[in-house]
Structure formats: structure tokens, C-alpha cells
Amino acid sequence: MVYARLILMRLFKAVIVLFLIVIFNFLLIQLAPGDPAAILAGQAGAADQEFLNQLRERFGLDQPMYVQLWRYVSGIAMLDFGYSYRLGVPVFDLIMARLPATLLLTGTAFVLSLVLGIVAGSMAAARVKKPSGSLIMALALVFYATPLFWVALMSVVVFSVYLGWLPAYGLYTVGAGHTGFALALDIAKHLVLPATTLALFFMAIYTRMTRTSMLDAAQQDYVKTARAKGLKPSIIQRRHVLRNALLPIITLAGLQAGQMVGGAILTETVFAWPGIGRLMFEALEQRDYNLLLGIFFFSAALVIVFNIITDLVYSLADPRIKKGAA
């Protein structure tokens, strides 16, 4: 079975990549400035030598390097990412609590950017060398060149401060006590600005890619064949050009997953969106390295999962893979 084989292969690769990231993470922790025991002690308020040694023993910091590495790796295999030095809470719990908000934000932004990008890109491809087509591409270029965090700030100024249309911070209105549908609506309102901001940059990428890919597909011999059949241009565009043009976009979408995480960090920071991106910013501000690296590992894992999904989608879309050729 081709799919089973594909999934198995990808999972195997994923495990190797994750293992390497764990080792990488461990090395970084060693490089991190400051003595973790001192930081832990600093939290506790006392810093005499005996207490430090106690802490070292308790967290295994007095063990040789390879033992620490083994503990770290086996810990992560059991989903134990250690403790946040500052908050004294397991890193895994912190991340899981924040994960849904991030998935909601990035998922919405992904769908939004993909759909709008493909629509805008096809429109631009159909209007090549016309003013309207050039306008779409100019806009895409501007969105592509604009720093995401700046768009976020400016949209707060315009839509929240100046126009007062949308809330600027948080996931929902604190203290309003909404439940059920009202809560969903409230969250949706809060989602508009962050999701749109995050989507703009990716929409620009998909727009540019779709246009290039469509123009490329339109040059192919099979399009000439389709015209020779007497098919309507609209059918040719949809059935022959667009379908073939979408394949490289699926690949691109997979590659963009990592960028999406980066975008989420900035967007969540500006909008105080309680996801793992915001958590990362907080960890950064407090120099909470264990938490920082835990989030880093987790975001890489998310990207890998997303990559596996895009691989599967690609294999569904391209019969050449389904039948095991090429």
C-alpha cells in the first residue's frame, strides 16, 4: 500500500529529525548563560552553597554530561520537557495550555491566506499585462515586504484605537463571562485582526507563486491540446491550468509551515494572543531558557506534522505518486 509506506517513511524521518533537534536543544542548554541552579535558587530567594548543591542533585545537574543527555532525551520521549525555571511549572503543561489558541490562529490564517492567495494569483495570471493584474502583484509585493509586527501594530492603531471596530488584545473579553455562541462570537471578533495580519504575508507569497505557476502551466503543450479540442477558456483555466499549477503550491505550503510559526510569535506578541508564540516571547523576556527550548522543540514538531500532511495531500493530487512512479 503506497500510502502506508509513505506515512511510515515520513514518520521514520520525523523521528530522526526530532531526535536531532533534542540533541541540538540539549547542547544549547549547556551553552545558555548563567547557572541553572543559581537561577532556580534565585527564584527561591536563597542562594547559599548547600542549597545550590541540593538543587543540582535534585535536577541531576551534578551528573556527567552523557547522563544528563540521556535523562533529557528519555524525558522528552516521555513528553517530559522539564520545568520552567521561572514559573516552576512543567514546560509541557504550559505549552499544552497555550496550544489551542495557536492552532486556532495559525489554522485560520493558513486557510485564509491559501484561499485568498490562490484566488488573487489566478486573477493576476488571467490579467497579465493589464493594469488590474499589475495592481494585484504590486499589492502582493507590498504585503510581502511589510514587517508583520508593524502591520499588526498599525492595524491596532487603525481598527482598534481609531475606528474602534475590533478588540486589539487577548483571546476573549476578560470578565464578560460569555458562554456558548456568545463566547464563540467574542473569540471570532478577537481573532479577526491577528489572523488577518498573519495571513497577509502568506497570502502575498501564495499570490505570487500561484501567478507564476499558472503562467507556467498555461505555456504547457497540454493546454494547446485543450484549446485544439475547442474547450472554453474558463474550463481550460480551471481543469488544465489551475489543477496543474496547484501542485507546486502544495509543496510551497508545506515549506511555509515553519514561517507560519515565526509569524505567530510576532503576531501573538503584539495582540497578546495567549498561544505558544506569546509564551515564547514571555520566556524570552524572562530568559527562561528551558521553556524557550521546549517551545522551540514543540514548534518544530508541529511543522513536521504539517509537512507530513502536505506530503499526503500532494500524493493524493498527483497520480504519478499514487501509482508509485517517479
Binding site: V17, G258, Q259, L292, A300, V303
Partner: peptide, 21 residues
């Protein structure tokens, strides 16, 4: 190369700069 491409690059940059100061 794929390994480095899989890792979310902005997150990696953050971690690197934070650790290296």
C-alpha cells in the same frame, strides 16, 4: 539541509540569539 529547513527558522534565530546573547 532538510534538517535546517524543517526547523522553523525564525524560532531558531530567536533561540540562537538568545543563547549567544
Amino acid at each position: 539541509t532538510e534538517f535546517f529547513q524543517t526547523i522553523p527558522n525564525f524560532a531558531l534565530a530567536i533561540v540562537l540569539v538568545a543563547i549567544m546573547q
